[in-house]
């Protein structure tokens, strides 16, 4: 049992309130992603779990035990830093085994557990290297190795993939998800990238200005975003928003429709507009349409669409795919 529970936690730096009162439960064994724009307090939350940051008020429990004032090393957690934070003068093996060595574990036991972790992460051949002799992806693996040898109850990741190139990032996403399946420990993962959140999480917590906008399964957030912020943050390309008269006509003060839920036609539809530009990706087409009285709308269509710039087109939302908001809250079901 290693759930993580925030109860009435607040965090401020001097007079600046970064996290107003926050309650959150991270389920045992879950892969929970904290996602939100830069500066919304994700790292602060993660670092409070780790004990690298004191809470201003409230309590944090891990597996039912109050750890609010415990040392980082006594919380049963391990953390992977964005910079990897590998000890530059130590070999890969020493980096991975450092915590075990400090805990007084016998040398051969340390070596055995380091070897086990290295095998999982395909680091066996690199154990005697120094970090500067490794590629970015290999360093990343060492940082993960350092986390798994400690057999923590909770893994913490702070934007661990943002220093990698796109291809490696996609590969590491899969590896991390597989690692979670294999180990089964609770994982808390911070990112500003909603794609990482959608692909890896079994639960997403969307943060905005230190507050929880919405928490839930990725598909629930996609299907029924609770606030305009979540609606705009989750999904790519970004959701289209209608305001004013156009929204009122559909029953809200703000109405959203995802680009993949719009049909484009040369003949008829709810909204009329002019095609400004189209991007052809082969598997899909992104059309940018200027709609009168609404503004620019993005349409995502499977496969090829034969439309020409400046052509008059009609857009219609699919059945049941409108997201209606009133006073900042979702009112459509």
């Amino acid at each position: 049992m290693a759930d993580v529970r925030f109860s009435s936690v607040r965090k401020g730096y001097g007079a600046v309130e970064v996290i107003p009162e926050l309650d959150l439960t991270i389920e045992d064994g879950s892969f929970t992603v904290l996602v939100g724009p830069s500066g919304c307090g994700k790292s602060t939350l993660l670092r409070m779990i780790a004990g690298l940051e004191e809470v201003t008020a409230g309590t944090i429990t891990i597996g039912g035990e109050d750890v609010t004032h415990r040392d980082p090393s006594e919380r049963g957690i391990a953390m992977v830093f964005q910079s990897y934070a590998l000890y530059p003068h130590m070999t890969v093996a020493d980096n991975i085994g450092f915590g075990l060595k400090l805990s007084g574990l016998p040398k051969d036991e340390v070596a055995k557990r380091v070897a086990d972790a290295a095998a999982i992460l395909q680091l066996d051949k690199l154990l005697e290297r120094k970090p500067r002799q490794l590629s970015g992806g290999q360093r990343q693996r060492v940082a993960i190795g350092r986390a798994i040898v400690r057999k923590p109850k909770v893994f913490l990741f702070d934007e661990p993939l943002s220093n990698l190139d796109a291809a490696l990032r996609a590969q590491m996403r899969v590896e991390l998800a597989e690692l979670h399946t294999r180990i089964g420990a609770t994982m808390v993962y911070v990112t500003h990238d909603q794609v990482e959140a959608m692909t890896m999480a079994d639960r997403i917590v969307v943060l905005n200005g230190g507050r929880i906008e919405q928490a839930g399964a990725p598909m629930d957030l996609y299907r029924a975003p609770a606030t305009p912020f979540v609606a705009g943050f989750i999904g790519s390309p970004r959701m289209n928003f209608l305001e004013g008269q156009a929204a009122k006509a559909l029953g809200g003060d703000l109405v959203g429709i995802r680009p993949e839920h719009l049909d484009i036609s040369a003949a008829s539809g709810l909204w009329q507009g002019r095609l400004r530009h189209a991007e052809h990706l082969g598997s899909e087409t992104l059309s940018y349409v200027d709609v009168e009285g609404v503004g620019s709308m993005t349409v995502k269509t499977e496969g090829e669409v034969s439309v020409a710039p400046n052509q008059l087109v009609y857009l219609s939302p699919r059945e049941g795919q409108l997201h209606v908001f009133n006073a900042g809250k979702r009112t459509s079901i």
Partner: peptide, 21 residues
């Protein structure tokens, strides 16, 4: 880098060990 000190704290290094390592 400050990160190294934090990583060492997580690894259970006391303050003189953080100095040493």
């Amino acid at each position: 880098p400050q990160d190294l000190y934090e990583a060492a704290k997580l690894d259970g290094a006391k303050s003189w060990q953080r100095f040493r390592y």
